[in-house]
Computed example of a mutant assay.
Amino acid sequence: MKTILNVIWLVCGGFFLALSYFLAGIVCCILIITIPWGIASFRIAGYALWPFGRMVVDKPGGPGVASTLGNVIWIVVADIWIVIGHVTTAFTMAITIIGIPLAIANLKMIPVSLMPLGKEIVPTNRPFVSTYR
């Protein structure tokens, strides 16, 4: 089922979403000081390409001071437009019944695009230790 949803996702906009994150990663890596956000954009691009069967968790040890500061800068500089894009495309996907799971997957990407540093994308069948107790 995950494979079918991923293929539908890929055809209905996931490819272009992943491509936009990939291009943003290239731009961030060219502007040397923004390389951490570029690496995070590449990670999100992989997640945007094949989201079903994967989830976002905090990296072991939790986010550090540098990750938190980087995420605050990211929110101020670029994130509002990314969140608006995800909400808009999720709304348009949810218009049809078959698009509802795709809209949920799109909304599932908002937290990692909101604060990309200090996150890891793992398969859902892999056991992980939650940092929330």
Results as ranks from 00 to 15, higher is better:
Lys2Tyr: 13
Lys2His: 14
Thr3Gly: 06
Ile4Tyr: 13
Val7Met: 06
Leu10Asn: 11
Gly13Leu: 03
Gly13Pro: 05
Leu17Val: 13
Leu17Asp: 02
Phe22Leu: 07
Phe22Lys: 01
Leu23Gly: 08
Ala24Glu: 11
Gly25Arg: 07
Val27Thr: 07
Cys28Gly: 12
Cys28Phe: 15
Cys28Met: 15
Cys29Ser: 03
Cys29His: 00
Ile30Arg: 05
Ile32Cys: 00
Ile32Glu: 00
Ile33Gln: 01
Ile33Arg: 02
Ile35His: 01
Ile35Cys: 00
Pro36Asp: 05
Gly38Ile: 01
Gly38His: 03
Ile39Glu: 04
Ala40Ile: 01
Ser41Pro: 12
Ile44Met: 13
Tyr47Thr: 04
Trp50Ile: 08
Pro51Ile: 00
Phe52Ala: 12
Gly53Ile: 13
Gly53Glu: 05
Val56His: 04
Val57Phe: 08
Lys59Gly: 09
Gly61Leu: 07
Gly61Lys: 04
Pro63Arg: 15
Gly64Thr: 09
Val65Tyr: 02
Ala66Leu: 02
Gly70Phe: 04
Ile73Ala: 15
Trp74Arg: 14
Val77His: 07
Asp79Pro: 01
Ile84His: 04
Ile84Thr: 09
Thr88Asn: 07
Met93Ser: 06
Met93Phe: 13
Met93Val: 06
Ala94Tyr: 02
Ala94Met: 08
Ile95Cys: 08
Thr96Cys: 12
Gly99Cys: 08
Gly99Thr: 12
Pro101Phe: 09
Pro101Leu: 12
Ala103Asn: 07
Ile104Glu: 11
Ala105Thr: 02
Ala105Cys: 05
Leu107His: 12
Lys108Cys: 11
Lys108Phe: 04
Lys108His: 02
Pro111Trp: 14
Ser113His: 04
Met115Tyr: 06
Met115Phe: 12
Met115Val: 10
Pro116Lys: 10
Gly118Cys: 10
Ile121His: 03
Ile121Leu: 09
Val122His: 12
Asn125Ser: 15
Arg126Asp: 13
Arg126Ile: 06
Pro127Ser: 14
Val129Leu: 02
Val129Phe: 02
Ser130Lys: 05
Tyr132Met: 10
Arg133Asn: 11
